[in-house]
Design a protein around this nucleic acid. Structure first.
Lengths: 209, 209
DNA sequence: ATAGAAAGCGAGCGGTTGCTATCTATGGTA
DNA sequence: TACCATAGATAGCAACCGCTCGCTTTCTAT
């Protein structure tokens, strides 16, 4: 009948725990319900934490969102890095990479990032906070792509190809109205990705090995 | 000292006038301040109309936004149609068309459409209202592109190319953090557009005339 | 053991939101 | 003219928002 002894945690552990829960909850809320519906109350409910706890660690809602942005930015970099860790020679290889990238772009972390991006358009402070994270993300993405394609094409062209690919995938994700965008809305997306792969490979033929 | 005689307007004219003013005001609010800041009060202030007038013609805020979506959808079709009304033979021609398309995508009407797109992700009713408009828009876009490129490449490939182009431009617009995305954030966007044009032209060489 | 600091809680405050109820003004109709 | 339906204006309501404040609980240092 006795209440089980609560686990003993140091203050830093408690702090880190609730902050982590709040950040994860914010990511979930943003990805599932969108920016407007991500109220402090909703985040606290999802995190299993009171509002007082939230405002102890984040002075304002905006601060929480900025912290969440930086949180998912690092996650996204890791995801991308893990996604393109493959050899690319044939068209099918490129198609496979594009498919994996597409799945990564549709992940909750990237969904959250996108939600924050559009919100930043109407919020100068959030925009200022997102800019460096975005540049760092792009730089790391470029470096990762360089490891894969470096010898195959000049650096400027690599940035251009990357811009085409990621912006297309982002545009696809932004404009997706269906709850599951990978479901069959016609094959034109798959066809477009394969066409893009063919164009890239034929425009930059592999070095003779 | 007498108040100048108010112009005599029929009821239908009054109705149409305020509805038009409300729709235009909603487009402006969405494009400039974003979805969340587009409150009924803000729209009414921008339109120079009372809230009572708004709720007479639109039973709910959502209905206003849905009507606005259909409003800008037709506008966007016209814009696109006017944008691609050019001959395309050389790479420079394609680059020019892509540039015009980019400008069109960054226009307020398309900005509004994008704002509604992301809002629809968290709003089933708005999503249901946007779906047919989106399909119609895509179909008309495809038809227009067919007039330009029809003899040059098979229909399936045309849809794929179109998907690549518009999704890339959309992604570019969505991810733009700067107030003026056309300003010089490096030349990589221009480079990417030119590269894309080269790829398209070389992949689908023009028919011998 | 005890005092102080940090973490967490939840009631509540001012402000804004979408929307309604009530009233007046205006155009159509006999 | 008299009458009515429609259009528009104004005031205000209930709900929700971000955020604050006083309080209790939990860890740390002496």
């Amino acid at each position: 009948m006795t209440i089980p002894a609560p686990p003993r945690r140091t203050q830093a552990q408690r702090r880190e725990g609730t902050i982590g829960a709040l950040l994860d909850a914010t990511v979930n809320c943003l990805a599932e319900r969108g920016y407007a519906a991500t109220s402090t109350a909703a985040v606290c409910a999802e995190a299993g934490v009171s509002q007082g706890a939230l405002f102890r660690h984040f002075p304002t809602r905006q601060a929480l969102l900025v912290a969440t942005a930086e949180h998912v930015a690092t996650r996204n970099v890791e995801t991308f890095r893990a996604t393109v860790a493959a050899e690319v020679d044939t068209v099918d290889d490129v198609v496979a990479v594009l498919g994996h990238l597409r799945a990564a772009v549709l992940s909750p972390a990237n969904q959250t990032w996108r939600e924050l991006l559009v919100a930043a358009r109407a919020d100068a402070d959030l925009r200022a906070a997102l800019l460096p994270a975005r540049e760092s993300l792009q730089a790391q993405l470029l470096a990762t792509a360089g490891d894969l394609w470096g010898p195959r094409l000049p650096a400027d062209d690599l940035a251009a190809v990357l811009s085409i690919v990621v912006n297309m995938l982002d545009g696809l994700a932004f404009s997706a109205l269906d709850p599951d965008p990978t479901a069959a809305p016609g094959r034109t997306v798959e066809r477009a990705l394969r066409l893009l792969a063919e164009m890239i490979v034929s425009h930059y033929p592999q070095e003779q090995s």
